[in-house]
């Protein structure tokens, strides 16, 4: 499942859904709004292109690693410190490919998926600079 949503998610539900008889390990990554002295962040997406890109990243991971499933949920909208931003769930027969695939997916998301963050502080706001142009 690939989703971009304004709603929060329940990691446990997604983890349980990744179970199947060939899966020996499930690795997850949960991104959370960190307290860098901010009051809130706004996440903005080019939704159609971001969904397409997340799907392409899932397909890349499925072809590169020995894994059975990839689920990605990315939130948009206004979030507070401690809120979930992103969840990646990878189900695999063996742990090593699950860990590697999960790291590959979050790194690729940060490189190419058209989503941006604007941080709000007591003094104003600023766009978080992207690392890859």
């Amino acid at each position: 499942m690939i989703t971009i949503t304004e709603e929060d998610f329940n990691s446990g539900v997604l983890i349980d859904k990744a179970r199947d008889r060939q899966v020996g390990g499930i690795v997850t990554f949960t991104g959370i709004v960190r307290d860098d002295g901010i009051t809130a962040i706004d996440l903005e997406a080019y939704r159609e292109a971001a969904l397409q890109e997340l799907g392409a990243i899932r397909d890349e991971a499925l072809s590169r690693y020995d894994i059975r499933s990839v689920d990605i949920i990315h939130r948009i909208g206004t979030l507070a410190v401690g809120d979930h931003i992103v969840l990646i769930v990878v189900g695999s027969p063996h742990r090593k490919d699950a860990f590697r695939a999960c790291e590959y997916i979050i790194d690729r998301i940060k490189e190419t998926v058209p989503i941006w963050k604007k941080e709000y502080t007591a003094d104003g706001s600023r766009w978080v600079p992207g690392e890859h142009s």
């Binding site: 990315h74 979050i106 941006w116 992207g130």
Partner: peptide, 9 residues
């Protein structure tokens, strides 16, 4: 579509 470097995740 025109945009700056992405910063999701």
């Amino acid at each position: 579509a025109i945009y700056p470097p992405v910063a999701g995740g």
